[in-house]
Amino acid sequence: MDQELKRVQGAKVLDGRMYLSTDIGTKSVYSLDLATAHVEELFRLPIFEGDIRFETEGLAPRELADGGLEMHVERVIDPQAVEGEFDAYTRLYRYVLTDEPAPVPVPATLPLVLSGLAAFGLALRRS
């Protein structure tokens, strides 16, 4: 591998890549190309502030019909963070990764706003 990964908590192979969830400081999910051994950080999971223990666990990748990748990542969260006690729950995160950047949606109100600005501009010209 061209990058060392520590605290790997889960790994799955899909179409020549290994996907790895880590429990390092960034709580990142990585992709490892099995042919070239190139490691790439795909995304980071949210980090909780305060006195909360949480640990990244397993993951489940799935290829989508449009060529994208859907990734589910499991975490164990202990909100009390009291030594010796374990009052935890799991949280499942879902990410969809694509090769193309997602288009920015245009709000449906944009034409209305533009027509209002045009009317305001005409009103200013007349006065």
Rank of each mutant, 00 (worst) to 15 (best):
K6V: 13
V8L: 04
Q9M: 11
Q9A: 06
A11N: 00
V13G: 03
D15P: 03
D15W: 01
R17C: 10
Y19E: 01
L20P: 04
L20F: 02
L20E: 01
S21P: 11
T22Q: 00
D23H: 11
G25E: 09
K27F: 03
S28I: 06
V29G: 02
Y30C: 04
Y30N: 02
L34F: 05
L34Q: 08
A37N: 12
A37Y: 09
H38E: 15
E41R: 13
E41M: 12
L42C: 06
F43S: 07
F43G: 07
I47G: 09
D51G: 04
D51N: 13
I52Y: 03
I52N: 09
R53C: 10
L59T: 11
A60T: 14
R62V: 15
R62L: 15
E63D: 13
E63P: 10
L64W: 08
D66V: 06
D66W: 00
G67L: 01
E70D: 13
M71H: 02
H72D: 13
V73E: 03
E74L: 15
R75S: 14
I77G: 09
I77L: 04
I77E: 05
D78M: 01
D78I: 04
D78Q: 03
V82M: 09
E83M: 07
E85S: 12
D87I: 14
D87M: 10
D87S: 14
A88E: 04
Y89L: 10
Y89D: 08
R91C: 11
L92E: 08
L92G: 11
